[in-house]
Design a protein around this nucleic acid. Structure first.
Lengths: 227, 227, 227, 227
DNA sequence: CATGAATGAGCATTCATTCAT
DNA sequence: TATGAATGAATGCTCATTCAT
């Protein structure tokens, strides 16, 4: 599982002086520790001291880099998203494939690059805290969600243009295409992580989902379906 | 939007029969007020006093009916689910229709009876608090999620048996079938409720989704789809 | 020594249940406890918990009546001043006496009604905190200081009109007349209270001071004084 | 307005002779920065880091020269007083003048040498912190206040001996003579500095005050004054 | 039954102090 | 010497919980 920065869990390797100087690295380590805990327990239930502990520093140190718990929250979310956005851009460049192939490829790479990462918990966190952090949510909506939707919309359009997909209502369809991905994420960071879940392995699930969706969108699939 | 209980407000004269009924209604009113607020702000960020205020009673009164905030949380979740379970049962009895018709009908009725209700926020709440309330989550998982999955699985099986659906991996498919419903709920109680969000009207979206899914599952839909 | 409200030191007389209900009295008791401690230690060095303890309540109780430490500070100052203002008004009504008699009487009564009271420490407190609480200071300046100055100015004017006092620069003179009073207060709540001080008894000192001042203002006193 | 030390600022090249001088000057610069801030905001509300910043050094440097914030406070007060004491000594040597002339001269020179200096704020500071720093206060009382009182007492005695002043109770009178000076200082560093205040210009005020006091003490001034 | 004043443990935040560099 | 990153005790404030009325 990819790590946001090099693991904050493994203690500063050989030199173990407690008081370290890492001005450069600290904000990143703290932000990483923070999102992980916020994702786990939610904003309110996460104690600043625990974040500090997970990052291997003391309570006061957090305030050398962030003005408040809220500021840390915002910074952690935004910092966590940057790799996500960049990874998304890279996928955008993908070209030439027929839309159905592209869609399958898109989901697979999304899973490896984002879904299967601590950041995969972000949607759950944002969902839980929209009401408490409308500005952060708005930012996330604009920078992440809309962007992703536009990307998916482009794939869909291309498919229709290529004659690979039939004409479906674009807005609804984009949401439907994202639904299994979102569900997978939420499951994983929700019920799935307490021994509860019972779900096929992610890759398998995504492939199965893409299969149903592609069949559902396929140009020739209308025959014999009741309206 | 349906209310869980009838709104509190006009104070009935003391010791009137109405007042008696109030006494028995209290736990329910409190539970109703509680889930609504828990859904809005999460467990930790919801103040007991606000719940009391919304239920029209004072802080101390809550403790006449519930031992603690946690107990109220559990009771609220469980109480909120009862109507859901019963509504689910009713749908189970539905018979005789071909599976695709049944599926469409299922989603429509689910939306009217549950989704479009304050209880529609429950999944979001559970998701956000699994880590903090594993027992409640386990209970919810067993009593609600598994039940719903079995129901959906039954519909799917019936469709295959009827020759309406092709053979698809059952576990994955059940999740895929629920995904758009879950997504709709989360959107509604998450981003959708802060003026963010832009989504087709729920009924429309559900119909569109069911359309894609049914095409995706349809017995004859395999032709010409790349594996 | 007069008390602002009945002494918060003496515990709730016969009934000693720790949890008491005194919604009416509490704000006053807290304010009284607060000024005393603020006067003693200054704003920053006074712990809210100590104020609470002196008022015989717990930390949290303070927040039932005041929004913050600052709010308590402001309220305490303002509440402390009300008796002062009223006492001042009463003195204003004093009439008919020649100005020198009036001046002596004014100081004596001021001492009994205000100076020799816990409120006597207010000037010291205000002085110490002007920079930190400009608004409170401005309020105090306008409502207390200017008022007192106008009163003293009126006495001075009357003396000149009566031919009892010679013509002296009014502004400077008013400050000079207040100077010994202020000094007495500051001494008392400053050096005087740590066993340091050595000063004549207040009444004596005030009489001596008034004597010098009246001689200094007396109509016939100019003879033989070097300019 | 005179500065306690010359302003820090332009960094001299390392190890230059100037830098050497700086090293020795540090404690003084720190002490100077410290009293100014203590006077402004009080002991508790002054952050060590701000003092360091004003002195142009970093937080840690303060601890090279002072053991603690309290030690710095004491040192700053004591250091600030040295010039004051010496200036006082110089005034003591003043001789030959009649007491009334001497008194007027004394006040004028005091104002120029001390009052109108950052150190003029010391009395306010001491006043505010007596309770919190009894030892410093005791020291200040003995070394500064008593000394000043003795000096003023000597002037008074001389005046009586010269037949310039009438016999007045010495203790009270000394306090009365200092009162306008103290008041001026407190005004200046208290209300006067926030745009509040309205007082004659200091020199003017002192002259007016001295005029009233001298008239009040004058040998022939008793005639026609009511006891 | 219901109230709401009172409590105190818990957490965010500040800042004097330390110490590796 | 000087620095400033790091620490942690101290304090303001919140809120779940209790209990006298």
């Amino acid at each position: 599982m990819a790590r946001i920065t090099e693991s904050p869990g493994t203690e500063p390797p050989p030199d173990s002086p407690v008081r370290q100087r890492r001005k450069e690295a600290r904000p990143g380590e703290l932000a990483a520790a923070a999102i992980e805990m916020f994702i786990e327990k939610g904003f309110a239930a996460t104690r600043l001291e625990d974040i500090a502990a997970r990052a291997g520093v003391s309570k006061g140190t957090v305030y050398l880099y962030f003005d408040s718990k809220e500021a840390l929250f915002k910074a952690a979310v935004e910092a966590g998203i940057i790799p996500a956005l960049e990874a998304g851009e890279a996928l955008l460049a993908e070209n030439g494939h027929p839309a159905d192939v592209l869609l399958r490829e898109f989901m697979r790479r999304w899973w490896d690059l984002l879904g299967d990462t601590p950041l995969g918990g972000l949607p759950k966190l944002m969902l839980a805290e929209v009401r408490n952090f409308p500005e952060v949510a708005a930012w996330y909506h604009e920078r992440v969600i809309l962007r992703a939707m536009r990307l998916m919309g482009a794939i869909l359009d291309r498919g229709v243009a290529q004659g690979v997909f039939r004409a479906v209502p674009p807005e609804s369809s984009v949401h439907v295409l994202f639904a299994p991905m979102l569900t997978l994420l939420l499951w994983r960071h929700g019920f799935g992580c307490c021994g509860l879940g019972d779900m096929p392995p992610p890759q398998q699930y995504l492939d199965d989902a893409v299969d149903i969706l592609i069949h559902g969108l396929a140009a020739g699939s209308a025959a014999g379906v009741r309206p």
